[in-house]
């Protein structure tokens, strides 16, 4: 047996760690979908922009990615709000197909803006803790990966509390369920749309901070995440929080095992295949029950 237990176990652990971040990225996407019923094609590119911002903060001001987290969440929230109010909302006239095209346009702009500003180089950062190892059973995990996993879970929890326990969350849920009714009871629906979009984008700010110490950034990195995030959202069920979390972990492990058994190049195929199969045979996903 070439693949004995410790190798598979550590591969699964690495997949779970990455899956946590994937879940966080997908959570923003599924929130936006669940409330606005739109597919935010710019999601990957916005993550890429956030990652470059984190990289810049470290390179120019020496701010550690983990310290930058509150800053990034606030910054991305603002960017998301302005983007929706200024571009996505007014330009798409509320039509599903248009929103896909408008957010595609935003993605094209952001990708190439990054290419223009930062060139196509792939960049990584190095921190004192970059290569510290943590032992989990027979597996060795780098410390940043573990932090990213736990951090993602924490952000997911905060987001869930926000949606489930606050007045804003209540308004968001009301708009998601019944737009017209929400408007009738005095909720500013357009503003809730913008706030929801902003919260979804703010998740990317947190994801970028947690991701960068273990990942790389380049103008194309958004493309890597776009398909993955869509797959998770579809797998978990469009609009389902729990689905995004579980879906993220499943995809992370799939990717890790795919890479182990099929090799680096062919291993990525698992994600796209899952995506296609779920769309074809169970478009409601794992947790997206009847609406």
């Amino acid at each position: 047996m070439i693949y004995d237990f410790p190798i598979i176990f550590s591969s699964v652990m690495n997949g779970l760690m990455l899956g946590g971040i994937y879940a966080l990225v997908a959570l923003g996407l599924t929130l936006i979908y669940g409330v606005l019923h739109i597919i935010n094609f710019a999601h990957g590119s916005l993550l890429m922009i956030a990652m470059f911002a984190v990289w810049l903060l470290l390179e120019t001001l020496g701010i550690d990615p983990y310290v930058a987290l509150p800053l990034m969440v606030a910054g991305m929230f603002g960017l998301g709000y302005v983007l929706y109010k200024g571009v996505v909302g007014p330009m798409s006239h509320g039509e599903d197909a248009n929103i896909l095209l408008v957010t595609l346009g935003v993605a094209v702009i952001l990708d190439n803006l990054a290419l223009y500003l930062f060139t196509g180089d792939t960049r990584i950062i190095e921190r004192p803790y970059s290569f510290e190892m943590v032992e989990i059973g027979p597996a060795l995990i780098t410390l940043p990966k573990l932090i990213s996993f736990l951090g993602s879970l924490a952000v997911c929890l905060v987001l869930w509390l926000l949606i489930d326990r606050t007045d804003l969350g209540k308004a968001i849920r009301a708009v998601a369920k019944e737009r017209q009714g929400a408007r009738l009871v005095g909720i500013d629906v357009e503003n809730i749309f913008a706030l929801t979009y902003a919260i979804g984008v703010a998740c990317l700010g947190a994801a970028a901070c947690l991701l960068l110490p273990t990942f790389y950034v380049s103008p194309q990195v958004g493309n890597v995440f776009v398909i993955i995030a869509f797959t998770i959202v579809v797998l978990g069920g469009m609009g389902s929080f729990l689905g995004a979390l579980v879906g993220g972990l499943i995809i992370g492990v799939t990717e890790a095992l795919g890479g182990l058994f099929l090799g680096e190049a062919l291993g990525q195929i698992g994600i796209s295949l899952i995506f296609i199969l779920i769309l074809l045979f169970r478009p409601t996903g794992l947790f997206g029950g009847a609406k």
Binding site: L101, V108, L113, L115
Partner: peptide, 21 residues
């Protein structure tokens, strides 16, 4: 410079969807 043309493409796409469907 790389990317400038595509930035403009993206802007044009958004404007077309918004104003000239």
């Amino acid at each position: 410079a790389p990317g400038v043309a595509l930035i403009l493409y993206g802007i044009v796409l958004i404007l077309i969807v918004g104003f000239l469907p």
